[in-house]
Amino acid sequence: MSARLAPFLQFTGAEPCQAPDTDPDWWTSDDTNDRAAAQLACLRCPNREACLAWAIDHPTDAGDAIWAATTRNRCFKLRREFTTTAPEEPK
C-alpha cells in the first residue's frame, strides 16, 4: 500500500449511490442481483476513480461492499498489483 492514503469521497449528489431512486442496501447486500445492480449503477458514476482509490487504500473500512463497481476480491487483486515493488536497477 502506498504511504499516502486516498481521502474519503466528497459526495456531490451526482453519484448513483446517493440518488433517491436507488436502494443503498444494494452496495452491501448478499443478494447477487442487488450487487449486480450496484455495479451497473457505479459504471455511470462521475467519482468512480476516487471511490476505487479509497476502497483500495482502506480495505478494512471498505469491507465487502461494492466500491466503484468493484468487489472486495477485485480490490484485493488491484491492491496487490499496486503494491508490488519495482525491480532494482542493474548496476
Rank of each mutant, 00 (worst) to 15 (best):
L9H: 03
L9W: 00
Q10R: 12
Q10V: 08
F11A: 15
F11R: 15
T12I: 07
T12N: 13
T12P: 09
T12S: 15
A14E: 15
E15V: 09
E15H: 12
E15Q: 13
E15A: 09
P16H: 06
C17T: 01
C17S: 03
C17G: 01
C17D: 01
Q18P: 04
A19P: 03
A19F: 04
T22N: 04
T22I: 10
D23S: 09
D23F: 04
P24D: 03
P24H: 01
P24K: 05
P24T: 00
P24L: 03
P24E: 05
P24M: 06
D25F: 05
W26F: 13
W27Q: 01
W27G: 01
W27P: 00
T28L: 07
T28D: 08
S29W: 06
D30C: 01
D30N: 08
D31P: 07
D31R: 14
D31M: 06
D31I: 11
T32R: 09
T32N: 06
T32G: 03
T32K: 13
D34G: 02
D34Y: 01
D34L: 00
A36G: 10
A36D: 14
A37S: 14
A37C: 08
A38Y: 01
A38N: 10
Q39G: 07
Q39I: 10
Q39M: 15
A41S: 06
A41R: 05
A41F: 03
C42A: 11
L43Y: 10
L43G: 08
L43C: 10
R44F: 02
C45E: 05
C45T: 07
P46C: 05
N47E: 04
R48I: 07
R48C: 04
A50H: 13
A50W: 07
A50T: 05
C51T: 00
C51Q: 05
L52W: 11
A53I: 01
W54V: 02
A55I: 09
A55Y: 01
A55L: 04
I56P: 00
I56R: 00
I56K: 00
D57F: 07
P59Q: 13
P59R: 11
P59C: 12
P59L: 05
P59Y: 10
D61N: 10
A62Q: 09
A62G: 08
G63I: 04
G63V: 06
D64E: 15
D64T: 12
D64L: 14
A65D: 00
A65P: 00
I66R: 02
W67R: 06
W67V: 00
A68C: 13
A68I: 10
A69Q: 10
T70L: 12
T70Y: 09
T70M: 13
T70P: 04
T70W: 14
T71C: 05
R72K: 12
R72D: 00
R72M: 06
R72S: 05
N73K: 15
N73F: 06
R74P: 00
C75Q: 11
C75S: 07
C75K: 04
C75H: 03
F76S: 13
K77N: 06
K77E: 12
K77V: 08
K77A: 09
L78Q: 04
L78D: 02
R79D: 03
R79P: 02
R79C: 01
R79E: 02
R79V: 01
R79M: 05
R79F: 02
E81I: 11
F82Y: 12
F82R: 15
F82D: 11
T83K: 14
T83V: 07
T83F: 02
T83S: 08
T84Y: 07
T85C: 12
T85I: 13
T85F: 11
A86P: 12
P87L: 14
